[in-house]
Design a protein around this nucleic acid. Structure first.
Lengths: 204, 204
DNA sequence: CAAATTTACTGAACACTGTTTATTTTTCAA
DNA sequence: TTGAAAAATAAACAGTGTTCAGTAAATTTG
């Protein structure tokens, strides 16, 4: 009987429809400003219907987050190609920061927003981000092995590199660099120089 | 006639009462989860009364933010005492990160939350944060002058140091370091080691 | 094919939120 | 004591996430 299979397809199609609308609106207006009623209106269903396909608003975010991490990982796969680990480290940093600056709302969803992976959360979530982090760790351990960077401990190095990248992106996304009184147009340039300088400083 | 003066006093007292309650609740429950009705209930007034003393909820946050920056600056004044600029840089970093980790909700208000200093905002706000940032810049320029750190440009260095500090605190506050699978109890230690390592790496 | 049952969907409600306004209460000078 | 000015509020508005009883459609059964 193909009916139950068609129903399964229908269900997944509906989930995708909701998710696509949600993602689009999260990116355009941000997570907080997007209401379930707006999403429902967009897909021309009642708000209550969404709850038949997703537990709550956070689950919607959770799914969008998954896709976002996939996007970032794809970007890494595309842009991070160098064999030399230090060169690769540069590519990782640039790719990360560029991704964050180019997709600020997406970055917000992934790393700045509170819900839903907030502290008390299940660990399976971490499959999402752990790919990229493992990638970084791998790269850094090669750098250390070949004595290309001044760090000794891989974990501390990874923490530093990630914190630097995240710090740059998130301070920019939240406009905190305003305190530096730079030209708006220069800022992105300065951030890129900044990470370039970081790589230079930490390498032998 | 001392009546109008007493009224002025009364008004300021009321403002302070509201602000104190707001601050307390922001720190306990976070900005988003604190409603004006809750604040009003706490001070035993109607919600509408708050609007006689503050324009909106953001203005409340704005004022709390001011106090938070004062607190951070006080902390700097207390803890950052070394004459040697590199030693002072260490103290700045430790003080910043320790403050952030010890006052996570406050840090959230200052640097992570969206409202109210979001991008389109008046510049006078920046008196708040610019003290601390100027302090960092001063310290770094001395470090560079005395060839104690491997940076050449003060602004790039400042950007890096701040991004590192903010990155460490904000990733921790938002539980993103979970991906590293460390013991909860170890995490704070590792963060401190991490910034220690950073200082070591960037200095000659 | 018709009736019964399962599935899909929705309107309306609940308990909230920030904010505004008309109304009441209080204060204080004449 | 009265009348105007100031302070406080109740009630409403428009919005939120979420739940649930009830309707409409699709499917299975007799």
């Amino acid at each position: 009987m193909g009916i139950s299979e068609r129903k399964e397809r229908d269900k997944q199609e509906m989930q995708k429809r909701i998710l696509d609308a949600a993602m689009k609106m999260f990116l355009e207006e941000g997570y907080e400003k997007t209401s379930l009623r707006n999403i429902a209106e967009k897909i021309e269903y009642s708000p209550a219907t969404i709850y038949l396909y997703f537990k709550d608003k956070d689950e919607l975010l959770y799914e969008v987050q998954k896709q976002a991490f996939e996007q970032l990982n794809e970007e890494f796969a595309k842009k991070v190609t160098a064999v030399n680990p230090l060169e690769r480290l540069k590519q990782i940093c640039y790719t990360y920061v560029t991704f964050g600056l180019a997709n600020q709302e997406l970055y917000d969803l992934m790393f700045i927003i509170r819900a839903p992976m907030n502290c008390v959360n299940d660990d399976d979530m971490w499959e999402n981000g752990s790919d990229a982090f493992g990638f970084l760790v791998q790269c850094l351990s090669e750098c250390i092995e070949q004595k290309l960077i001044r760090y000794n401990d891989v974990m501390l190095a990874a923490m530093n590199v990630w914190a630097m990248g995240h710090g740059l992106v998130s301070l920019d996304v939240r406009c905190r660099f305003k305190v530096m009184q730079l030209e708006e147009s220069d800022l992105e340039n300065v951030i890129n120089q900044s990470i370039h300088e970081f790589i230079r400083v930490i390498s032998y």
